[in-house]
Design a protein around this nucleic acid. Structure first.
Lengths: 216, 216, 216, 216
DNA sequence: GATGAATGAGCATTCATTCAT
DNA sequence: GATGAATGAATGCTCATTCAT
């Protein structure tokens, strides 16, 4: 529940190798490969990280890795796709269960912060390496990304409707918020900042009441 | 006034080749190289763009380019450094002249949007390629970047002081804002969105009053 | 009678795996593998065709294939050897039964054309991939090939003897003829050219009377 | 006059690197590279020969080679194209100057044998590696090859016309002859066989009077 | 009989950079 | 100022083959 690689069986069922071989052993190894790759891509960047790095990090042979993916790009795709899939599911659930739009925004931001803190590598890769994929890989991820964005925008629209704001403004507000969320990886360091809950509270407050937080 | 390459003579005066040769012709060519590189780095990413691309884009020979810079990394450095230098100067001026902190925040955001729209390539590179530099190059840019950030944070602190907020909250607010500003390049397309002035107004409103904008 | 794979039991009885296991099922599968390989080698060339291609074409697993042959080279060997073996047998029979040397040449050419048309892949491989085998594999096929050549040369010698030609000339004539026969695969396309019988008639006519065919 | 690489300046003037750089030094080196490659491709086959082999054979660095060609395939293309170009020119000249069709055939065969003996590597590559090229490279060579074939076929047609033969028969005769010519590399070894002139005499005799040569 | 998983060795190609001229 | 020629080091990827099961 939550980790992008935990539910591989369900999500990666189209043209990747995961669809051909489904032994438990295969899935376990693939997860290992993906998590090592995530760490590497996060640290060095997708372009600078090499398959040889992955080989070293996993202890597998260079050629052996290619049993689990078809290309370096597919590796990145798997990481991004499963991550966005997870985020979408979580957000969908929130929206379905929370009727108050303001609370809903808070829940969304909170969920994202918490997800980030538990999957820093993956989220960093989702923010920074958007343009590293091409063609079908790009399109498939972009679709999921758009879904996540649209869901978020819908929250702003509900808030907006209550006070007569325009749809264009909701869209922009969502874009602004995404900037903030996608930038977290640049500055957040565990232990040096408040926890996810507190950060979410503050950021939500800004978006709902402006800065600084009005004293309670 | 403002273009990062316009004031090369002034800024690039330490260890780059610009300090050795200062003929007007040299500067003209260097500017051409930098602007072609900016376009390339913005489009393909620093790592994926090659010096051969730069050679082709400028019509200069591969070897000839190295008369104007010592390494591909220096090229990136020059772009980032001069851009942050420009931004800092502009922001310093704003802060010096504007006493009302709220208005000051608005001016800052407005300036940044306008600067972005006139130097999309450079700002994209400043946001996305932060980790592409290493060692001294990285440090020198990070210094400038920190200055720009600190100046912005100081605005939030002034706002905060008026209503008794904490310094930590100001810092976070600034980080949130920077996320939004550094993400613009991902979605902004000329003609499809309101102009800089309008965007600045909306974003400032969110940070000062929350979303949606209260009707006046 | 004639297809190189039809009489596998008889021919492949030395160091290949065929000598160890001789169940009918084994032979059936081996034939399937050989025929798929022939098609692949003919289409892509021995070097460019991969065992993975064979695996895909046969629906067998990569590792499973190695139960039927010891190496890719052995696969090629099996194809070439059985083909030359077949050709030799047929030619021997012709020479034994036909006393008139001119008619004998015609029969030989006719047989070769007909064999070619029914086994295009195999003959293509026998012509084009001669140098793809090494060591023992090469020698064993070369032996058969030489036998086929010698039998043919003997026909020319009989023709030559009748009119006092030299042995060297017979050898060259046979070499010239083999060039023509080994090149057929490059141009012949079913339906676009006369059938085997007619082609054989024309080619024989050239070798016996020269071009153009004298009107009868 | 005749070596396929001797007249590079003239022939290789389209999309190869030869069109960009034309210094004498460049041409000299390119010729060296092409001739080393020819030897290698002839000996090991195109697929089996590696660029590393070329590097070793020429004493140039692996990367340095790519200054002279864009890909291994282009290397093969250059060899094949210039060879067929040379052959075509020579044949055109023969046909233009020789009015008697029988003598013309003799001249053609003689020229081919002589060209072969002086450029064994290149001709071997032209015969054996026809299908190693793809796309545009293939098409461009095929064009030249067809021209060479058509010119030859035209000779047979002239012979045929004198005695009322059909065009289809001329075409087949030309195909048969090409088989013989393209197969020479498989058996001819210097010193072990008569020289080009004598071979040409014998082969022509077969095609004009049949085997064996009638004693005069 | 058959296969999932794995690997060593190798391959074509690229790239930033240099240096003699 | 500028470039033709060259290179060391690396990169993503493939392939025939093997072995435990």
């Amino acid at each position: 529940m939550g980790s992008p690689v935990r539910n591989l069986k369900k999500t990666v069922t189209f043209e990747t190798r995961g669809s051909q071989h489904r032994t438990p052993r295969y899935n376990k190894k693939l997860r290992k490969v993906l998590s090592a790759s995530s760490a590497l891509f996060a640290r060095k960047g997708f372009e600078r990280a090499t398959i040889r790095d992955v080989s070293q990090a996993t202890g597998m042979s260079l050629a052996g890795l290619y049993y689990y993916f078809r290309s370096k790009e597919e590796l990145l795709f798997l990481i991004q796709f499963t991550t966005f899939e997870s985020l979408c599911e979580k957000l969908k659930e929130i929206i379905e269960n929370e009727t108050d739009p303001q609370t809903c925004l808070h829940s969304m931001i909170n969920m994202h912060f918490e997800y980030f803190i538990r999957n820093m590598n993956e989220l960093k890769i989702c923010s920074r390496e958007i343009e590293s994929l091409k063609g079908d890989f790009y399109r498939k991820v972009a679709e999921k990304r758009k879904k996540y964005f649209d869901l978020t925008q819908s929250i702003f629209e509900k808030i907006s409707n209550k006070s007569g704001g325009s749809s264009a403004e909701s869209r922009l507000a969502a874009l602004y918020l995404f900037g903030t969320l996608n930038w977290i990886y640049q500055w957040y360091r565990t232990g040096r900042y408040p926890d996810a809950k507190e950060l979410a509270r503050q950021l939500t407050a800004i978006y709902l009441q402006g800065f600084p937080r009005k004293s309670k």
